[in-house]
Design a protein around this nucleic acid. Sequence first.
DNA 1: CTTGGTGTGTCAATATATTGTCTATGTATT
DNA 2: AATACATAGACAATATATTGACACACCAAG
Lengths: 318, 318
Amino acid sequence: MSTVRHPIKIVAQRTGLSPHLIRVWEKRYATIQPERSGGNQRLYSDTDIERLLLLKVVVDAGHSIGTVASLTLDQLRSLATSVGKPPLIVTQLSGARPPTFSPPPRQPETFLESAFAAASALDTVTLERVLDEASIALGQVALLGQVIAPLVHRIGEAWRLGDLKVAHEHHATAVIRTFLGHSSRALAIHPAAPALLVTTPAGQLHELGAVMVAACASAHGWRVVYLGPSLPADEIVGAVRQSGVRAVALSLVHPEDDPGIPEELARLRRLLPQEVAILAGGRACGAYRRALEQIGATQCSGLDSFALALDQLRQGRN
Amino acid sequence: MSTVRHPIKIVAQRTGLSPHLIRVWEKRYATIQPERSGGNQRLYSDTDIERLLLLKVVVDAGHSIGTVASLTLDQLRSLATSVGKPPLIVTQLSGARPPTFSPPPRQPETFLESAFAAASALDTVTLERVLDEASIALGQVALLGQVIAPLVHRIGEAWRLGDLKVAHEHHATAVIRTFLGHSSRALAIHPAAPALLVTTPAGQLHELGAVMVAACASAHGWRVVYLGPSLPADEIVGAVRQSGVRAVALSLVHPEDDPGIPEELARLRRLLPQEVAILAGGRACGAYRRALEQIGATQCSGLDSFALALDQLRQGRN
DNA sequence: CTTGGTGTGTCAATATATTGTCTATGTATT
DNA sequence: AATACATAGACAATATATTGACACACCAAG
């Protein structure tokens, strides 16, 4: 976590709250206590900003500030993801389910194990529950980097070894796809947030990398226009022009030897407005390195690197 | 269980009851006793909300509030499951909402128009919001049949006419995919509920039909194992054996002239246990009619017909 | 069939609480 | 000097609480 501190104006921009309101919340509910500069001006940390963002989410959803202002960060995260969901009506039947419930795990490895076990058993409910708990315990970003990404990788490996079948991979993909799609919208940021378009080039059918990228960007405060997999360059350009995004993120996973991809990338750069940046990531990134370099795309080796690139992009243009 | 407390507005949103009614129930029947804040405002726990939800379920099912208000939580739970209605879904309300609790009765056509406009504008947030509101106003089943299915059809037509581009179709598909994926899990299914596997045969890449089928089955109280698109017959069979489902639902949309499909279908029937039924639906259903008849699949002409088939299947085996 | 009671949801009126915004004045930063 | 920020207080717009009344459906007895 960076030690950077932000003045109130930046915080207002990023959260969509007015400086007035931020100060009033601090005064009335002591929900945050930013540091002060030598001249008594407020200096906010990234954690403060996340807290304010979460508060805005739940308040927009109808909660009153008075009842949520004193919650912990974890409680706020949990509330933000569960906003609007009715509490689960638990039908307590001591039937088929009990063997799978264990004391709430804490470590990413534990979550990974539980998730992998559920995926191997085609157990949708348990897999969803583990992801939910991991999301609450670890937060959105760590969940992506330390549970979901390794889980996807591990399922791929297990398939290569013959331990799992294609059906397991499809099932887990579908569950993760739904989970991430929903978590992206939990933090739907205010309209002035910078926007990013996420897709994969034509021929790249794997969707999961793109969904993870979308969720990561959303967790970092970007407004995401997600277009799913396999979109030709001219379609991407049309969507960019219509939605006014600042950057395009492409996920490249499989195949790694498609001769059409370099062409598509070149065409994309040619048709795209100069000021729109291109970010690329995914396992197949290396295979297309030359083409990516030629179009000046920022290549990201992982989600951390992608998040960093997003921050730089935002800084550069704010 | 979290210690979070909710103001009455949130409780009204999540239960569908008016604040008025919630207070009246408290006063007349003392069915709940929420805490109070310093300013004497009611603060409800998650348990309180669950109780109110259950009360609404059984009252909607015909019981009078006076006779059920004094039941314990457990009694309410079992009564709610025994009324056996398609468990009502109180989906989320996101973002700012009109402050009224008797919103102008909106017609499916209105939602369809708004949704189509949002899809045309690549406006993810609005499209999600319209789907949310439609889900509440119309209920899950009508939403599927009268908004989502026509919307998908209309976007397809607009694309054929050149009014929309592929990017729009991809975008709407992604949003609907996320929405339906999430709505399938909004309610906790009874562990003993009959189970259904949903997928498309190898070569059928369109996912949306399968997702709609999954959501429909889920809304009708089935436990759904969703495997995404394009799965070979032997993979389907493996998943059926492992998950112990009672039936397999296949969505057939495009292409309509794949010579591999009849083969796949025949192989599926041959490998599948006798007692597992096969349901088929989708636009391309007619094109493969002969093959479907040969394997004894139940062909569904639409979501209504599909729901009917599910009910019959459940009756037949209970 | 009518009549009256009961159960139930809704509404009106008034008072209080909560919450976002605004104003005024002074200080910091650039 | 011009802009941005801090503090305190005031104010307006909603939300909520409470009480009492009313409308409607249902049912049982006359």
